[in-house]
Design a protein around this nucleic acid. Structure first.
Lengths: 112, 112
DNA sequence: TTAATACTTTCCGCAATGGCTAAGTATTCA
DNA sequence: TGAATACTTAGCCATTGCGGAAAGTATTAA
């Protein structure tokens, strides 16, 4: 299962930070400028910008500069890739549990 | 959306490494000893063990030692928590797109 | 009781991360 | 034109992460 797909490295690493997850959450509501994004955080702007860059590198977010304002928006592909990886594994796990249960059931039948 | 829930920090950070994702994949097939896990990797045992420890700290994996063998198994809760966070956000994103589409549709209606 | 197995601990080195401040650039407002 | 705004770059620092080698401990096999 699961080839080494290093896109996931970046996506999961990006999501490992609470500040970045909060940024992703806010961008799910709609595009925002860097200063709008920084507003709820008690953090210097350059630090926040670094998080935005990490999110961009991971493909979770894209941004575009118009005039002096950089507008950030969410980019769903990377998020969906991460979702898909996890979904597959939870599914695989549950399938295995089902097989195990069926197996135990058969054992019981034999005993009686 | 999404309070700071630092359980996710660990889970996503753990999944950010391809070696650890591969370990999770293999454990989805069933419990394995540390040496069984290490077998496909070109990596010293202590290094691999470190990955297992990271997975344990994140709650994705648990292990138990019997005799001289440590057996590792997958622990689905943390994986489901990560799954749930992503699912919520993909859903939020899609909902927003729907609203946007509906809005654009209304604009068009007005024009005609 | 000796030898092999299966980890486990300790310590090293290097690169990346996450925060900061200070100073710089490019736009826009007055 | 001059000042305010919105980033942006550069550099510093402490911590963490990922790999290794070497040596140690506990179990099991012979």
């Amino acid at each position: 299962m699961a080839k080494y797909s290093s896109d996931l490295d970046g996506a999961f690493a990006a999501l490992a930070d609470p500040t970045r997850r909060a940024i992703v959450s806010r961008l799910c509501e709609g595009p925002k400028s860097v200063s709008e994004l920084s507003e709820p955080f008690d953090m210097a702007l350059p630090s926040l910008l670094k998080h935005v860059r990490v999110l961009e590198r991971s493909g979770l977010v894209s941004s575009e500069k118009t005039g002096r304002v950089r507008t950030c928006r969410i980019e769903p592909h990377a998020l969906q890739a991460a979702e898909s990886w996890i979904n597959r594994h939870v599914a695989a796990w549950e399938k295995r549990l089902d097989r195990l249960e069926a197996h135990i059931h058969r054992m019981k039948m034999k005993r009686n």
